[in-house]
Design a protein around this nucleic acid. Structure first.
Length: 598
RNA sequence: GCCCACAUGGCUCAGAGGUAGAGCACACCCUUGGUAAGGGUGAGGUCAUGGGUUCAAUUCCCAUUGUGGGCUCCA
């Protein structure tokens, strides 16, 4: 958490609570070794190495002790020790983790700071509240227990982390908890089940979703949008196999780096075949399938390619991290003169998608090479050239970015898009690379205007990331309420009584012939129940059909996102529905202007 | 992969060392109702899997698998 003047007081409260947490833990387990205990954006945590692990029930006891400490009004007082003394002191007081860190700090600082409150003392830079009484009543709550590696390094011992929530006041805490609860209501795993979008099955395997008919509609509609966008931008579609001989991944250079996160090979006819973890090598092979002329460039090859990655089991999470994923992938092969415009068009496409889906919060990370790193292929000033292009494109399009040295791919600079949805879920949506080096590994060439052979620049791009992640994100962003063009069921017909089922059936047939996904509710449920069912299924359009409607050959239209309803002539309504679908209107937002006139 | 927790009908969840219960959903019957739950009847579970302790285990212990919260990783 960044310390600014504005949140300084809150920072102190959280930081002090972290100390009080450690103090309470030491009361229960005096031999606990302390790790780090910083404030974070929702509160604080502290890491402990324990002889006996905590269980969630222990949190109540710890919280009680913390409250008691706060009540006893202990003053926070700062003092200093020399670095050498600090290391000795911590070693003698059974704090080897702190001592290790103090040893490192000692190389930079002569003296190290401590804070003491009551019987508890901790090496710490501060700042803290003056006394525990300054901590507002009821402003915190211990939240969860988690494991974490000492110093965030998986080769180090695992510590136990206790997370606490803390805000300026009890009200703010309550508000946060309520907001979090509402966000959980929109969790894509919950909505995925309720709306019959996808399931996971033990016997199929971890991280291998089965897409149900409703979820498959979402995939196909999204893919159809991408196909249209890409077609209009001059992309061509390709299709490539799911398994491939290992030598391809030696050529690409991926296998040595990523072997651990690839599925084990299938050995057949003396060759090892891998499930493909990415699409680029195949697209490169398509580029290389015949002699290319500069007249063909830019060549833009697109594929919603299914890839398989053996992700760590502990990192799998719903649709956000899976082992079978369909990437919104494409590779653009172009000349040096074209690369600026092409990269810019790719960034613009991201903006267009985000605008369409009303993803208002996004930013990027521009990852640059480091001249001293061994990780990057040596390419002289070509690195600067490529990085300059990417940077200019971001600036020209006013896309916010933070530049980071040493984070590039080994073959070129990278732009990662980070997006946040309405409930605060933040995800890396896509990574895009300007690759000026892999062409040579594959021997990719085109014949230029000058009659000589040249290596193309390659842009790797995937604005929608993977179906799995992007759909998960959209489910939460929309709260499961999709626009008509995407919705698994676009229209639900609800006759007021049995006498109107025939009229409803006729409308169903008309809409079905126009390829609308339409359902007629002719169940035994009461009228009220049918309305309720349509609403809880988040169907965007409900058509109410009764005496009135049948007489005038009309419908009464109730939208999911709006309570009020209108009656329209049948033909007028069908025309409107078609425009909403074909023009992909985002009618799931209340303020979207509908295409009432042609 | 690592740490902690959890696993009971399709879903959400009760429950107890002595062979299981609710609501919703589902099926059938009645009801034909103008904007968020009409009524009745019924079916459905080897209590995740495999071991162990016990006269007896779904309940206690161990392992496995899966899920959740984190950590690490993410072409």
């Amino acid at each position: 958490m960044e310390l600014t003047e504005h949140n300084q007081e809150l920072y102190k409260i959280r930081h002090s609570l972290a100390h009080i947490l450690a103090q309470a833990v030491l009361e229960i387990q005096p031999d606990a070794e302390l790790g780090f205990g910083p404030p974070i954006s929702t509160g604080f945590y502290y890491d402990f190495r324990l002889s006996k692990p905590f269980s969630p029930e222990d949190l109540k006891d710890i919280e009680k002790r913390m409250k008691k400490i706060i009540k006893s009004n202990q003053k926070f007082e700062q003092y200093e020790k020399s670095s050498d003394q600090t290391v000795d002191y911590l070693k003698n007081h059974n704090q080897p983790l702190k001592a290790e860190y103090a040893g490192e700090l000692g190389e930079k600082f002569e003296n190290l700071s401590f804070y003491q409150n009551g019987p508890f003392t901790d090496m710490c830079e501060g700042p803290h509240v003056e006394s525990t009484r300054k901590i507002p009543k009821g402003c915190f709550k211990l939240d969860s227990i988690a494991g974490s590696y000492w110093r965030g390094d998986s080769s180090q011992p695992m510590l136990m982390r206790i997370y606490g929530l803390a805000f300026e006041s009890k009200d703010k805490l309550t508000q946060f908890i309520e907001e979090r609860r509402l966000a959980q209501e929109r969790d894509h795993r919950k909505l995925g089940r309720e709306l019959d979008l996808y399931v996971m099955d033990d016997e199929v395997g971890q991280g291998l979703p089965l897409w149900l008919p409703n979820g498959t509609v979402l995939r196909e509609e999204l893919e159809s949008l991408a196909k249209d966008m890409e077609f209009q931008q001059g992309y061509q579609r390709v299709a490539t196999p799911h398994i491939t001989k290992e030598s391809l991944y030696y050529t690409s250079g991926h296998l040595p780096y990523y072997k651990d996160t690839m599925y084990a090979p299938i050995e057949i006819d003396g060759d090892n075949y891998y499930l493909k973890p990415m699409n680029c090598p195949h697209h490169h092979k398509i580029f290389d399938s015949r002699l290319r002329s500069y007249r063909e460039l830019p060549l833009r090859l697109a594929e919603y390619g299914t890839c398989y990655r053996y992700e760590h089991s502990g990192s799998l999470s719903g649709l956000l991290r899976v082992r079978a994923l369909a990437m919104n992938d494409a590779h653009i092969y172009c000349t040096e003169d074209q690369v600026r415009d092409e990269f810019k068009a790719v960034l613009q496409m991201h903006k267009d998608y985000y605008e369409k889906f009303r993803i208002n919060q996004y930013w990027t990370r521009l990852s640059l090479h480091a001249s001293d790193g061994e990780k990057f292929i040596e390419a002289g000033d070509r690195w600067e050239f490529a990085e300059g292009i990417v940077r200019e494109c971001l600036e020209d399009l006013d896309i916010p970015f933070t530049a980071e040295r040493g984070e590039a791919a080994f073959y070129g600079p990278k732009v990662d898009f980070q997006i946040r949805n309405v409930i605060g879920r933040e995800e890396t949506a896509s990574t895009n690379q300007l690759d000026f080096l892999v062409a040579s590994r594959f021997g990719l060439k085109y014949k230029g205007e000058d009659g000589k052979e040249h290596e193309p620049y390659i842009i790797h791009r995937a604005p929608l990331g993977t179906h799995e992640r992007f759909i998960a994100f959209l489910i939460e962003h929309f709260g499961g309420a999709f626009p008509t063009w995407m919705a698994p069921v676009q229209v639900r017909l609800i006759p007021v009584a049995e006498a109107f089922v025939d009229y409803a059936y006729e409308i169903q047939q008309i809409l079905h012939r126009q390829s609308f996904r339409v359902q007629l509710d002719d169940s035994n449920d009461s009228f009220g129940k049918k309305i309720r069912n349509a609403v809880t299924s988040k169907i965007p359009n409900m058509l109410i059909l009764g005496e009135k409607e049948m007489q005038s050959r009309s419908i009464t239209w109730r939208r999911y996102c709006k309570k009020e309803q209108v009656s329209l002539g049948l033909d007028d309504y069908i025309g409107l529905l078609k425009r909403m679908r074909d023009q992909r209107f985002m009618d799931n937002f209340e303020d979207t202007q509908l295409p009432l006139e042609d």
